[in-house]
Amino acid sequence: MTSPFRYTEPIPPKAATGRTAAVYEQLATDFGIEDASPFVALSSAPELLAPTWALLRESLIAGNGSRTGKELAAVGVSRANKCPFCVDAHTMLLHATGDHALAERLAHGKPPENEQHARVLAWGEATRIPGSPDVSTLPFPAEHTPGYVGTSLSFHFINRIVSSLVTENLLPGNVQRFRVVRSLGGRSLAKTVRRRIVPGASLALLDEDETGPGPSWAAGTTVGPAYAALRRAATAGADLLTEADRTLVRETVEAWDGTHPPLGWKDLPNRDDRPGARLALLAALAPYRIADEDVAVWKKPPYTDHCLVHLIAYGAFAAVDRIERALPLRIHEETA
């Protein structure tokens, strides 16, 4: 059977031990899917896997706010990032919430009929543009900001991991494109999705020195420490690059306006000259354009799956950080 993973050989759930096994156990209990590909893709780096799961759990699953609304935000982010895997997955999860008509409208490229749903979806899409005025007016109660913003930033990271390291097909043969499969898949997860999840359980998977208070928009919630832990783990990948390459990545992402780079991207380094910087920048701004040759040139001894996952995560989080820092000040003030 063809593997859904590009460039790595992840640890399958049945072979996992330690912290990786504990994450898989929580995934099965709280998300309903033990072997969810975006997380399995990170399994060679448990120090990345755990905070990635923690941020998603504490925001999308356990955070304040409507699960339907946060799923819509996730779909909006995933559309903006051109991640068909995550668009399909969270369209199916809308079936799990019981919003079947809404899920099918999205699956067929139609806008939500409900104005509130349409505003949340558009807000999620707009978050890709750093500092976009379209995210300054919240389409949800201000007290739900940690859940919605945490969900959106979680998917800005996960979309990039998936587009870099996982194939586009959510299910073999893309069978999720059939309505009956989407509906049955969602219904199989309905009991888990509609269950009330207590915040905080995923933080036990993080070491104390991995966390921190987190950003002001998540103050006083379990989303903050989860975000801080992911930021710390992902930025550690900078050590795989030279100082010159780190500077190039930082300055290029800082100047990014949220658009998708053109095919003739003049600022993208040549793979033979600066392969690490090229991979990190692609992961940040156009992960769906990572080619076999890009990975092959860089991933040579002593680099391993663990190193590749860290480099991709470093690039991915560079974009997340750019987006998070550009959030309109009003969001920060309302939740500080």
Rank of each mutant, 00 (worst) to 15 (best):
T222S: 14
V193L: 12
S44W: 12
H95K: 04
R6T: 03
L121S: 06
L27S: 06
V180N: 04
R19M: 11
L184V: 10
D134H: 12
I158S: 04
G63Q: 06
V149L: 09
V198E: 08
A96W: 06
H95P: 05
A255H: 03
A45W: 13
R187K: 13
W217E: 04
L282W: 03
T8E: 08
R179S: 10
T20G: 07
W123P: 09
A218K: 13
F85T: 13
S183I: 08
T2A: 11
G76F: 03
G131A: 11
L93H: 04
D99F: 04
T192N: 09
W256H: 07
P301F: 14
L184R: 10
G32W: 15
R322G: 00
P130F: 02
V135A: 03
S154H: 06
T222D: 07
F5I: 02
V135K: 01
R182G: 12
A50K: 13
A286K: 01
R182D: 15
E208S: 12
C86E: 10
P84T: 02
D245S: 11
H260T: 15
S37T: 10
R187G: 09
D209Q: 14
D272W: 11
E34V: 07
D305V: 08
T29I: 08
A45H: 09
F31L: 05
A204W: 05
H95Y: 14
P46Q: 11
I323W: 00
A96C: 02
V149M: 02
L42N: 10
S37L: 14
A236F: 06
E293I: 10
C86D: 04
L240P: 09
A50V: 10
R67F: 09
G258K: 04
I323T: 11
P12A: 13
A122M: 00
M1F: 09
